[in-house]
Design a protein around this nucleic acid. Structure first.
Length: 91
DNA sequence: CGACTAGAGCGTCAATCTTG
DNA sequence: CAAGATTGACGCTCTAGTCG
């Protein structure tokens, strides 16, 4: 469960704090709204960064796959050549 | 053309992990 | 333990490609 305030900031105000209909100060509400905006902004940027890192990670993996496939192909050819040499020696 | 679709990117929520 | 950071999931928008 998140520890930060959810969608409706007024619903997460501390007990005894005036809601919108009360005629006392609006300050706590503004504070809560501001806090929410800040949280949304930070999470927006965090999500962007998270996606950037994930794409980078996938790119790295794809690159590694390409390298390993090349190595594998090289080894297959090397093995074929060695087998060929052995066959000629036996003959 | 317009209708439809697949894929990419985005913002948000919520759960979980990390840190002071 | 509270606050902040991270990330999977969802729904939305936009764009490029395809088809009738």
């Amino acid at each position: 469960m998140p520890t930060y305030p959810l969608r409706n900031p007024t619903s997460s105000l501390p007990q005894g704090v005036a809601g919108p209909s009360a005629h006392s100060s609006q300050k706590p509400i503004e504070d809560a709204l501001q806090k929410r905006e800040l949280r949304l902004m930070k999470n927006r940027e965090a999500a962007r960064e998270c996606r950037r890192k994930k794409k980078e990670y996938v790119r790295c993996l794809e690159n590694r796959v390409a390298v390993l496939e090349n190595q594998n192909q090289t080894l297959i050819e090397e093995l074929r050549a060695l087998k060929d040499i052995c066959r000629h020696k036996v003959e």
